[in-house]
Simulated scan of single mutants.
Amino acid sequence: MDVLKLLDEIEDIIEGSSTIPFAGKALVDKGDILEIIKEIRIKLPDEIKQAEWIKEERQRILAEAQNEADTMVKEVKIHIEEMVEQDEITKLAYERAEEIVSKAQNNAKEIRIGAREYADGLLKETEVKLKNIIDTLEKNRQELNNF
């Protein structure tokens, strides 16, 4: 992740800078820090776009799972209607239809749950990374403002 590398650069600049004895302060090249912050501002929208893509992908997966479940249910209903027409196997048809509907609903539920968990995991990971970036930026700004 480019933003994290840039934050590492800021950290390296601060750690490698001259210190003011007994003050706990560091002398840094303002231009270097500002240039890196500028690069972070340029790259940060890409990270946000990635998070938006993950959200859209999650919605697409959920919609796809719902469509698949709907199609399965329609197929099961058609199959049930065909079997009901045959008097000899009406009882078996009802049992089989219920079994198919139940499997279709369980499959759709598992697909939806899996898609949600996957998307939530990706969003959580992105959220944590963005929070770390923001925390680091706030810390660095505070340190710069303390001069």
Rank of each mutant, 00 (worst) to 15 (best):
L7F: 07
N146Y: 05
L92V: 08
N145I: 12
R112M: 13
K91M: 12
A108D: 00
K30N: 11
D70A: 15
Q86M: 07
K131Q: 12
R112A: 14
R96G: 00
I33H: 02
S17K: 04
L137P: 00
E35F: 12
Q66Y: 03
Y118G: 06
D120C: 11
E9R: 08
I100H: 10
I111Y: 02
I10Q: 02
R112P: 00
G24A: 05
S18H: 14
K91N: 11
I33A: 06
I40D: 01
E81G: 04
E11W: 01
G31Q: 12
I100G: 01
L34P: 00
F22K: 13
R58V: 08
E81L: 10
L34R: 12
R141K: 14
I89N: 01
L62S: 03
I111N: 07
E82D: 10
T71S: 14
I37M: 13
M83V: 03
E98K: 14
R96C: 00
I61L: 14
V28L: 02
G121R: 06
Q66K: 12
K55P: 00
E75L: 15
I54G: 04
I133W: 05
I40E: 00
K49Q: 13
E98M: 13
I133K: 02
I89E: 10
V73G: 02
A119Q: 06
Q50G: 09
G24W: 01
I14M: 04
N106I: 11
K103S: 10
D29E: 15
R41F: 07
K55N: 08
I113R: 12
K129L: 11
K103T: 05
I36Q: 01
E98Y: 07
D70H: 07
